[in-house]
Structures are given as structure tokens and as C-alpha cells.
Design a protein around this nucleic acid. Structure first.
Length: 432
RNA sequence: UCCGCGAUAGCUCAAUGGUGGAGCAUCCGGCUGUUAACCGGAGGGUUGUAGGUUCGAGUCCUACUCGCGGAGCCA
């Protein structure tokens, strides 16, 4: 007898098969009993009628509790009344692996704290299951996109000797006799070294920020993918970001239609994500804010509400480029047309999901970069290796970073990014 | 760090300063097509902690603890 998974049911209609999984729910109306099984690929309702199966099988039903692990055997048939459209006519329960203790997460509503404390169990629910599948698909799209364009994956270190950007608060740890080490806040500087070696590279890994951010857009540990391309300028960088976002979103909504339906996501808003994406300058963004009556001073960075107001003007992500250089990192190249501006770009997702991409053309001139390091009061010794990239065959280059959780949150339409990573790390939570 | 909101049964929530309840979950019973099944019954409480006001506090006041989401910072 075939042991199959629930997502293969349609190929086995009319056959007697065996399924292994966990009890999702059960219902009974006396002589008819319904048992709903999940196996990680979906759910199936199975049904048995008293008299049609041995009494001993029929009675096993009563002892089963939610999330008990078991295998069931029976014939698959099409059944419009069953969720999913297929049903098993149950003939046997060959194995009950374990009768689960009283399961805390019932099919009713729960508060976020209760669920977060049980994240390891919460992942079994259909909504979380759907989000994890979307996350997986987004990550696959990220890899496929770069791999298909001749990029090489060059992983950056997670333990680093100093701050990359000198702004964020970092997690600090003792590092043997070498003093302190810090958890990386960005792999970018290392990706630049990679780009000078291999031309087109990306790094992809976890990133850490010890900022005490408490918002729906923040985690202390999150995943970021950072491409870096030699000989690219800011326009090339925006072209790449635009292709990249279109690829991720279009592939994900095509392959995860069922998951997005579970999440009740309005997919029409994602179908618009095709190039060209609108490109506006920081100056244009400021004009929009002023038109909307917001008191915004030129020279500041866009805050959360500012980003939302700007992004609401468009039906797809918007690229905002050429920010005041003072609010941007030291390594960003200044605009030769106006040295007060940095050749930077942020991509703002629609619907208030905020900045999902931040990028720039990098400063490739040794002397200018040395000046910036002084201006930002960064320790030059720590950046000597990075300055070497400007001493030995410096070229124009550009790159960006995309936050995986914000991207997944936007595509799924989640309230908070904490649902988009299996085990979120936040300021007041590092368990389970 | 600052601002705001909150904490009552296992869970989600009610309760005018005057006898702490409901739905779900659990247990018992019923039901031959259920869809977060339904119907009947039962058990389940130091109202976050410590003080205070009051004849009387879940309710008002103070402090603390924990949580939530917003600012700042950022992906």
C-alpha cells in the first residue's frame, strides 16, 4: 500500500492509501465520525461510519486528542463537502504513535503573547504554515534570481571586529585575546570585497541590531540579502532592484496562491509589482509630504509615517533616491551634481510595510572615503582592509540590501514581521 | 530611552464602587454528513505584585513587574 502525502491526493483517487500525521480536529455525530489529519503538506478529512469498520477501530476515535500522532488507512474519494475537496473513507487506524496531552492552542482565538510563548507549537497552525511556505518561496526566488544572473554567493562573517556603519548599536561579545567582537549589522563591506574579486556577488545571512526598536517592522535578528556589483552605478542598482522585486513577487504569488488565500491576502495589490517601478528623488518625496500637509524639514530622514504617506501615492513599491548625504552611511558616494546628496536609494513597499530595500552607489575614491571616515569619527585602522579595495583597482560599484522578513510580511499581509520568521528575536523576547 | 494602552477561569473576553459571569477548551451524556459542528449536564478563580482610599475595591489612587505598539534607529 502506498504511503502518500496529503498534497498528492488527486493522483490517488479511488486507491486505498496510508497517511501519517497529526490530528488537526475531530467531530462526531454519534454513528458517523470525522477525523481531520494534517501531515505538513495539507489537511484531509476522513470519515467512518459505525458498522462499516470494526468496532475496535471505530472506538479508537474517542481517545484521540488534538495533535495526537497517528496513521490512517482508507480509500480516497472526491468529496465536495470535505475541506480540500477530497476525503478518506477510513478503514483502519493502523498506528497511534502518541495520544497528545491537552493541546494548548485550540481552534479558537488566542492572544499574541500566549502564541509567542508557544511559537514551537504555533508553527503547526494553518496560518503559520502558510507564512513559512511563502518565506521559503521568497528565499528560493532570491537565490534563483541571482544564481540565474551569474552572481556568486560570497558569505560575509557574522562575527566582526567593528561596526560596519558606525551608527547602530551592536551586540557585543568577548573574543578570546582579541578583545571584543560584534554580531554583524550588514555584510555589505565584505560583499564589496567579493565584488572586486568576482564581479557580481551576493551575501545572504542573518543580521543583528541591538537597537531597542519596538515596532511591527523590527526584529533584533533578521535575514538580509545583499548583492554587490562592480562597475554598476546608481541607475544600474535601481534597475537590478526593480527586476529583483518583480521576480520575487511574481514567482511567489504564482506558486503560493493557496497559501496567500489562507492568509486572505488581496493578491491584486501584488500583481502590480512589475517594472518599471516609480523612481522619485528625495526632493520629490519632500514635496509630496508638504502637499499632504506634513511638517517635514529638508535634510531629515523619512520616518515611518512619512514613508507610508509617500508609498500611498503609488500602486507598487516606490524607489526614493538621492537622500541628503548627512543622514546616510559614510560609504555612500555623493552625487557629483550636488554634493549634499548621496547616491542612495530606498525602496518603500506599499501599504505601510516600509523600507524593504536600502542601497547605494559606493564611494570609490580613496581620499574621499578617508575624509568620510574622519567625519563620522570611525576608527580608520578597522577599515584599512576596506580602504585597500580603493587602493588596488578601485572601480565604481553599487549594491543594496533587502530585508527578508519585511518582504515576506508585505507579501503575506501580516500585522507584524515576527510572524515571518520561525523563531523571532525581539527586544523583550528570545524564547523559545 | 520617551509616550500611550493593557493584565479577571487553561484560552478569548464581560462585570454602574455593592453576591465575579459567558463562549471555547476539559470531563460525562446525546446525535448516521460534520465544516472553529451542534444539544444537555459537571468541574474550574489569591481578579499580575505590593501598598493606599472606602462601611465595602476586579472597578478609584500610588509604586513595581510583565506584555502590547508607536517615536527615535533601521531592513
Amino acid at each position: 500500500m502506498a504511503r502518500i502525502y496529503i498534497n498528492q491526493l488527486e493522483q490517488h483517487v479511488g486507491e486505498e492509501v496510508q497517511l501519517h500525521g497529526w490530528l488537526y480536529n475531530k467531530r462526531s455525530s454519534g454513528k458517523v465520525k470525522f477525523l481531520i489529519l494534517r501531515d505538513g503538506t495539507g489537511i484531509i478529512q476522513s470519515v467512518m461510519v459505525k458498522g462499516a469498520v470494526p468496532d475496535q477501530v471505530f472506538e479508537k476515535f474517542d481517545a484521540l486528542t488534538q495533535e495526537s500522532s497517528l496513521s490512517i488507512k482508507g480509500k480516497i474519494k472526491k468529496e465536495p463537502r470535505a475541506p480540500g475537496g477530497y476525503e478518506m473513507e477510513l478503514s483502519d487506524i493502523p498506528c497511534v504513535y502518541q495520544i497528545a496531552l491537552e493541546y494548548p492552542i485550540t481552534p479558537k482565538e488566542h492572544g499574541i503573547e500566549f502564541l509567542a510563548d508557544r511559537r514551537h507549537l504555533w508553527l503547526r497552525s494553518s496560518r503559520q504554515h502558510a507564512i513559512m511556505r511563502v518565506r521559503h518561496r521568497v528565499i528560493k526566488a532570491i537565490r534563483d534570481f541571482f544564481d540565474g544572473r551569474g552572481f556568486t554567493l560570497v558569505d560575509s562573517p557574522i562575527l566582526t571586529p567593528a561596526a560596519c556603519e558606525g551608527t547602530s548599536t551592536l551586540f557585543e561579545t568577548d573574543y578570546f585575546d582579541l578583545g571584543k567582537a560584534y554580531l554583524t549589522q550588514s555584510g555589505q563591506l565584505y560583499a564589496e570585497a567579493g565584488a572586486m574579486a568576482l564581479g557580481k556577488v551576493y551575501c545572504f545571512g542573518p543580521t543583528f541590531r541591538a537597537e531597542k526598536s519596538k515596532t511591527r517592522r523590527h526584529l533584533t535578528e533578521f535575514w538580509m540579502v545583499e548583492p554587490e556589483v562592480a562597475f554598476n552605478d546608481l541607475n544600474d542598482d535601481m534597475d537590478l532592484a526593480e527586476d529583483f522585486l518583480e521576480y520575487i513577487v511574481q514567482n511567489t504569488i504564482r506558486d503560493c496562491a493557496a497559501e496567500l488565500k489562507v492568509l486572505e491576502r488581496d493578491v491584486t495589490k501584488l500583481q502590480n509589482v512589475k517594472k518599471p517601478l516609480p523612481r522619485i528623488s528625495y526632493d520629490d518625496a519632500v514635496k509630496i509630504l508638504h502637499e499632504k500637509g506634513l511638517p517635514f524639514e529638508w535634510g531629515n530622514d523619512l520616518g515611518g509615517t512619512d514613508e507610508t504617506v509617500v508609498s500611498e501615492q503609488f500602486d507598487r513599491p516606490v524607489m526614493v533616491h538621492r537622500y541628503p548625504s548627512e543622514v546616510k552611511a559614510f560609504y555612500m558616494k555623493r552625487d557629483p551634481q550636488n554634493p549634499k546628496l548621496a547616491l542612495a536609494v530606498d525602496v518603500l513597499a506599499p501599504e505601510g510595510y516600509g523600507e524593504i530595500i536600502g542601497g547605494s552607489q559606493r564611494e570609490d575614491d580613496l581620499d574621499v572615503l578617508l575624509e568620510r571616515i574622519k567625519e563620522h569619527k570611525l576608527p580608520q585602522e578597522a577599515f584599512e582592509w576596506y580602504l585597500d579595495l580603493r587602493r588596488f583597482g578601485s572601480v565604481p560599484h553599487a549594491g543594496f540590501g533587502l530585508g527578508v522578513e519585511r518582504t515576506v510580511g508585505w507579501i503575506c499581509g501580516t500585522e507584524h514581521v515576527r510572524e515571518t520568521i520561525p523563531f523571532p528575536r525581539m527586544i523583550y523576547r528570545n524564547t523559545p
